[in-house]
Write a protein that binds this DNA or RNA. Structure first.
Lengths: 247, 247
DNA sequence: TAATCACAGATCGTATACAATTAGACTTAC
DNA sequence: GTAAGTCTAATTGTATACGATCTGTGATTA
């Protein structure tokens, strides 16, 4: 469903599924993934408070494991923890948003080049299927899912490049980007990314690293320019209302 | 003592001291820093098991807070956690070592350029003092401290560049580099870095971003080439014996 | 009426207790 | 003598309980 194979690496375990959380064992990982998924699909708005008791009740877990999950998410940048105040869905500042896309513009083109040079036919097919799914979700009006898929397209490239360290960095950056887009996206067009992703796929199929690097760089600079980085007012709402049949 | 001012940012709190741990509140942070310091100074060998009970007893804390610390360190890459088996000081594989220095060679030159363009006179002085301290420690034979200082020189540059996201990445990479050097360093010369660091300082003082970027890139490539990336055999030892008056 | 203070409820930080899993050692069989 | 199997001790995973801190409400006073 989510195209996270990684072609050459054979390390099984917690790191394999989706957003690799480097550590939290047992059930914490499940909750991490569910919360991350909910945040990435914009079902949990930035700034929303994630009370330990409340989250634990929703997912049927104890505060111990919830705490571990929240800490892991905090480290990924998706959650902010304030001492003696609790955890909140992160609200990237305009400056952080700027920095995130600067970092992406530096790292992802390099990964795109590496991926283009070593990509296999099977991975090419997977990327193609991924783009189709993204296209379909976009046309079906499910923008949350479309955005989530758009993000995992980028992480898929990092996995194909088979550079674990940078892939980890990109994953964190992509996650933050999702929040940033939720807060600061100004464009209306829904077809914003399809073109670049198709162009990337073409460069990949031709194993043209140079072109892939250039396309990816332009793509991210373009995304960056699609943001309206002005401060937004805060909002508040309840958690139980938005997370119902998710446990 | 450790040159972590950061010239322009005014965010106080947990992030200010040394290795910014994004989250763990209260005493977990203390233990994080102490463990990190011990690992970075090679007082805790890679592969050493960090039992929760044992660490808790050494630092006079409960397993709860120790667990939080270990998870945070695991996310920084300094510790590996295996489910139902416990935490260990990380043993970067040769491949991980390679990837870490590739990432550093990509990110740090950019930061060096940014730092050179905006560095203040006060920061220049601090960097100079830092180099002197490094030099002194090196000549005093305290290689652990010298290496630690050498690492914090790089993080200081990231702080001066005032790019929080990339600075965080670099911090993690530097930490891992310390482990990598402990495992794979092959050169004998102790004066390995002084020259590059001095050259960097000169470029900074002239606000020559171009030169700083180039020097930093060569410097990291040079460090990378100083590694002997062949597999090492494992070792085992006790924790209590090496951490005595540290609580 | 507005501002200050005090109190109560709620939430987080930490410690402890119990359950589950693992690792090592001993026994036993071949 | 070696290998397999079982059992016990140790360690981690999880839950719960208690103490500390914060936030919001209400009373009191100028």
């Amino acid at each position: 469903m989510s195209l996270n194979h990684s072609n050459k690496n054979q390390d099984a375990g917690a790191r394999s599924l989706e957003g690799d959380f480097p550590l939290p064992p047992g059930r914490s990982l499940d909750i991490c993934q569910k919360l991350q998924s909910a945040i990435l699909q914009h079902r949990l708005e930035p700034g929303l408070k994630l009370s330990e008791d409340e989250v634990g009740e929703v997912y049927g877990a104890s505060r111990t494991v919830v705490r571990a999950s929240l800490q892991a998410l905090a480290h990924s940048g998706l959650v902010t923890i304030e001492k003696n105040r609790g955890a909140f869905v992160a609200r990237p500042t305009p400056r952080e948003a700027h920095e995130v896309f600067e970092a992406r513009a530096l790292i992802e083109p390099r990964l795109a080049r590496m991926a283009a040079e070593t990509i296999s036919d099977a991975d090419l097919e997977r990327l193609k299927a991924h783009i189709d799914a993204e296209h379909a979700a976009s046309h079906a009006g499910d923008m949350g899912k479309a955005l989530s898929l758009s993000g995992s397209f980028h992480t898929a490239i990092a996995d194909i490049a088979d550079h674990k360290i940078m892939a980890q960095m990109v994953r964190s950056l992509i996650s933050r980007s999702s929040l940033i887009i939720a807060l600061y996206w100004k464009r209306v067009e829904t077809t914003c990314e399809s073109h670049s992703h198709h162009a990337l796929l073409k460069a990949f199929s031709e194993h043209d690293g140079e072109a892939a690097e250039e396309i990816q760089k332009s793509h991210i600079v373009d995304l960056h320019s699609g943001l309206d980085l002005r401060n937004k007012e805060e909002k508040t709402m309840r958690l139980s209302d938005v997370l119902s049949g998710d446990a």
